Simulated assay, not measured.
Amino acid sequence: MKKWFIFLLVAASAQSLFAQDSASSNHIVIDSVKAKWGKVKNVNGTAMISSNNIIENIELSKEYSLLVTAIEDAGLTETFRSKGPITFFAPTNQAFEKLPAGELDTLLKPNHKLDLNYLITSHAIAGKFSVKDIQHKINANNGQATFRTIAGSTLTAKIDSNRNIVLIDDNGGESIISKFDILQSNGMLHIINAVLVPKTKNI
């Protein structure tokens, strides 16, 4: 009887040690995956990875197919692949569809490449700004903060009554940051629900 008891005790201990070792191995695998890929954030059903650059991440989702096309046609793909850092306010396809009928089609024509370049770069600012950074700047400037885009246009940020951060373009058009703090290898990505339109520039 004692032999059976000792045998069961040894077997239970071995099983416990195996379970602990297995759990430890799982943690090692998970930690190594995190170390390799960085932080992963779900954006409208797409897993965006912080070790990817801006282009690599927006190419993962059909939600940004119009934006990817616009960036390519504007000759800006390498700009958004660069080391940066760049903070990019990315319009969804639905945001582009809010533009007046035919406007995007016109901008995508080869003879409007510079205009398209100006529009897209009016959504980007140099540096890496989280929502907390933007909020801090808004609070430090009596409820409004102004940012200079890499196009040379300006964006004004404020917080509305629903605690959303609203971006205002040169023409007074407003866009809400709907998804935020999506870390990129070359900066920060925020998703917006309307295209920011700068004042017409004579190029």
Rank of each mutant, 00 (worst) to 15 (best):
Asp115Pro: 01
Phe88Cys: 03
Ile134Thr: 09
Phe80Ser: 11
Lys132Arg: 11
Glu72Asp: 09
Ala90Val: 14
Glu78Cys: 07
Thr79Arg: 14
Leu76Cys: 03
Phe129Thr: 03
Thr77Glu: 10
Ile86Gln: 00
Asp133Gln: 02
Phe89Ser: 02
Leu116Gly: 12
Asn117Ile: 04
Ala101Trp: 01
Ile86Cys: 04
Leu104Tyr: 02
Phe96Thr: 00
Phe88Glu: 01
Gln94Tyr: 03
Pro85Glu: 00
Gly75Gln: 03
Lys137Asp: 09
Thr77Lys: 15
Leu108Val: 05
Thr69Arg: 08
Lys137Cys: 01
Glu72Ile: 13
Ala90His: 04
Gln135Pro: 00
Ala70Trp: 09
Lys109Phe: 01
Leu108Asp: 00
Ile134Pro: 05
Leu116Gln: 12
Ile86Ser: 02
Phe129Trp: 01
His123Phe: 05
Arg81Cys: 06
His123Gln: 05
Phe96Leu: 06
Asp105Cys: 05
Ala70Cys: 12
Asp105Glu: 14
Ile86Val: 04
Phe96Ala: 08
Glu103Asp: 05
Ile120Trp: 00
Phe80His: 13
Ala95Leu: 03
Lys109Trp: 05
Thr77Ala: 14
Ala124Tyr: 00
Pro91Tyr: 08
Thr92Lys: 06
Ile86Pro: 04
Phe129Met: 14
Ile71Thr: 12
Phe129Cys: 00
Ile86Gly: 02
Ile134Phe: 06
Phe96Gln: 03
Pro91Glu: 08
Arg81Leu: 08
Ile71Ala: 05
Glu72Arg: 01
Asp73Ile: 07
Lys128Trp: 02
Asn117Ala: 13
Ala74Val: 13
Lys83Gln: 14
Leu119Glu: 13
Leu76Asp: 01
Thr69Tyr: 02
Ile86Trp: 06
Ala124Met: 03
Thr106Gln: 14
Thr121Asp: 10
Thr87Asp: 00
Glu103Leu: 15
Ala124Cys: 04
Ala126Ser: 14
Tyr118Leu: 12
Leu104Asp: 06
Gly75Val: 13
Pro85Asp: 10
Lys98Cys: 04
His123Thr: 11
Ser82Cys: 00
Asp115Thr: 13
Ile120Gly: 01
Pro85Leu: 11
Thr79Ala: 06
Asp133Leu: 09
Leu99Met: 14
Ser82His: 09
Pro85Val: 13
Glu103Ile: 10
Gly84Tyr: 09
Ala74Gly: 14
